[in-house]
């Protein structure tokens, strides 16, 4: 939300500017009756009356370019103004470097706005120069380490121009600052997935990294989710990695009852059942027990979900028992 022009003493209305007196302002066409009419400031009305006139006349001029600046300052979310501004930049052959500086300023004032970041992206595409993007997004992420727009722009720049080199250090620092910053974990995945690759070595390294973080805080969903994400790329699956399974069982033995741990063990059981590779630790009976523990004690808010999962495992349990019986009958 911008300041209204009413307190802005130095401000001259467009209608009072001699250099604009050849233009007839175009008031908003509201129709006969009021519908969602916003009580605009006088400045807002004035600027947009002239913007509508410029748009209608398709005027491509320096003064129009200047006018769009005033218009986006009053409402940075007006995509029409931004789009028209881009058309003007092209038509006038404006220096895009100064535009880059300008949009940086607007981003600093409105870091959570789709239009400003998109404008930035188009400029970088036109210039084919991503040299400032890591710093710009880095600054925005310093203000708010979870700013979705900033991350999205950063990922785009990195992916388009191959700027992966120092990204892992950047992510490491953010995770060290706040190990619960899920956006940073997501970025870690992005780097491995798009750049480093999921070689056996990288999978192992990421697993070790994540387990260290889980040791540190057991209730951190971000780390648990990342662990599961990494294991998608482990050929042995969720249940086949001995480092992970023994880590989990160790935590469990030490009385850790983090719902994420229990859920993780359930997922191991689930995979073992589906693969037909159940064992004394990972089987339907264990899964049923864990679902019940979550539903009634450790994760009550999700009791409906865990009860639903429990029913699924009970069916598998039934099959397990039937199979055992069959095997026993065969022995006889």
């Amino acid at each position: 939300m911008s300041d209204s022009g009413d307190s802005d003493v130095a401000w001259t209305y467009y209608k009072d500017r001699p250099e604009w007196n050849d233009v007839t302002p175009v008031p908003e066409d509201e129709g006969p009756n009021l519908v969602v009419v916003i009580a605009h400031s006088e400045k807002f009305v004035d600027v947009y009356d002239y913007f509508r006139a410029v748009l209608q006349n398709n005027e491509k001029s320096e003064r129009a370019l200047h006018l769009t600046k005033d218009a986006v300052e009053l409402n940075p979310a007006n995509y029409t103004v931004w789009q028209y501004r881009r058309d003007l930049l092209k038509a006038l052959g404006t220096d895009l470097r100064s535009e880059l500086d300008y949009v940086e300023l607007v981003i600093k004032n409105s870091p959570k706005n789709y239009q400003v970041w998109h404008h930035r992206r188009v400029l970088v595409e036109w210039l084919q120069d991503p040299s400032q993007e890591l710093e710009l997004t880095g600054d925005a992420l310093m203000q708010d380490p979870k700013n979705y727009h900033a991350w999205q722009h950063r990922q785009w720049a990195i992916k388009t121009f191959g700027l992966y080199e120092k990204e892992m250090d950047f992510v490491d620092n953010l995770i060290t600052d706040d190990v619960r910053n899920n956006s940073a974990w997501n970025q870690r995945y992005f780097i491995v997935n798009n750049h480093l690759g999921w070689s056996d070595l990288n999978v192992q390294r990421e697993i070790c990294y994540t387990l260290e973080k889980i040791k540190f805080i057991k209730n951190n969903e971000s780390a648990w989710n990342y662990l599961k994400g990494v294991l998608i790329h482990d050929k042995r699956g969720l249940s086949g990695n001995a480092v992970v399974t023994s880590f989990c069982e160790e935590l469990y033995k030490n009385k850790c009852r983090s719902p994420y741990l229990l859920a993780f063990i359930i997922d191991i059981c689930d995979e073992a059942i589906k693969k037909g590779e159940t064992n004394c630790l990972h089987n339907a009976t264990r899964a049923v027990e864990l679902c019940q523990a979550l539903a009634t004690k450790y994760d009550k808010i999700r009791s409906k979900y865990w009860n639903y999962m429990c029913e699924k495992f009970k069916k598998a349990q039934q099959e397990e028992e039937n199979n055992k019986e069959k095997a026993a009958n065969m022995d006889e």
């Binding site: 519908v35 969602v36 916003i38 605009h40 807002f44 409402n75 979310a77």
Partner: peptide
């Protein structure tokens, strides 16, 4: 009331007025 007029703080939604109509 909002379906007719909105206070000045809604200026930031001046490019989203059909949204306001739908939300209301």
């Amino acid at each position: 009331d909002y379906l007719r007029t909105l206070p000045q703080k809604y200026e930031c939604l001046d490019a989203s007025r059909t949204w306001i109509v739908y939300w209301v």
